[in-house]
Amino acid sequence: MATISAQSVQKSFDSLEVLSRLDLEIQDCEFVSILGPSGCGKTTLLRTVAGLEKATSGQILLDGQPVTGPRPDLTLVFQNFRLLPWRTVEANVGYGLRLRGVPKAEARERVQQKIDMVGLRGYEKKYPYQLSGGMQQRVGLARALAIDPKYLLMDEPFGALDAQTRELMQEELLSIWADSPKTVMFVTHSIDEAIVLSDRVVVMEAKPGRIVDDIRIPFERPRSAVDIRTDPVFAELRQHMWGLLRHEDRPVAAGGAPGE
């Protein structure tokens, strides 16, 4: 089982309260998006679940175990890719496997499989600087999936990509997830992205960061992003979430929230 449970998690940086006694349950193999304006603490929440930040009070349980630091069965995908620039595509994808001491032959096979999966066959020997942003994030995704994690945490992974690449990547993520479901926590400030991808969308508000709504997304899986976008239910959900975010009267929220 791979469940995530945040229990009255509170986090402050100095005197600034970023998360205010927040509770959240994520089921095994559920895809949950955390949607909210900039500064609502959604990234802090994700980092706390990942063991990169410590909660000031409260706790996070993964499969019942309290989080004390990074775990081998959890990986992250970052908005700014974070590839090692001095390593080739295949070495970057194999990074987690190498750290875990997976035998070379097995690692090579798994790396190649993930590279094929994200459509980067032929780019194995390229260095990150030779790739476009979309390709770099494919490497980031393949790297995260290569260790076959139970938990996949994504922090605005497509936020730095152009609109078309972004939709393409969403489509690919849908099909990857359909093939091997994992417990996914997906932070985004795009309403569309959250609806298209998720089983549930958790909407947060800022100052202090808290959950204001938790919305089940009714679309059947396997999904097609294109079909969903033209569904009337999609428009309804979108309008509902937009209404929630609009409450935030600060300009940051208005600019960040509408999605693409």
Partner: peptide, 21 residues
């Protein structure tokens, strides 16, 4: 620092952070 954190997120030990990053 992002790259150091990346290594940490993959449970890298201190000496592998030196070697790899």
């Amino acid at each position: 620092r992002d790259l150091v954190e990346l290594a940490r997120s993959f449970c890298a030990r201190e000496y592998t952070v030196w070697r790899d990053v």
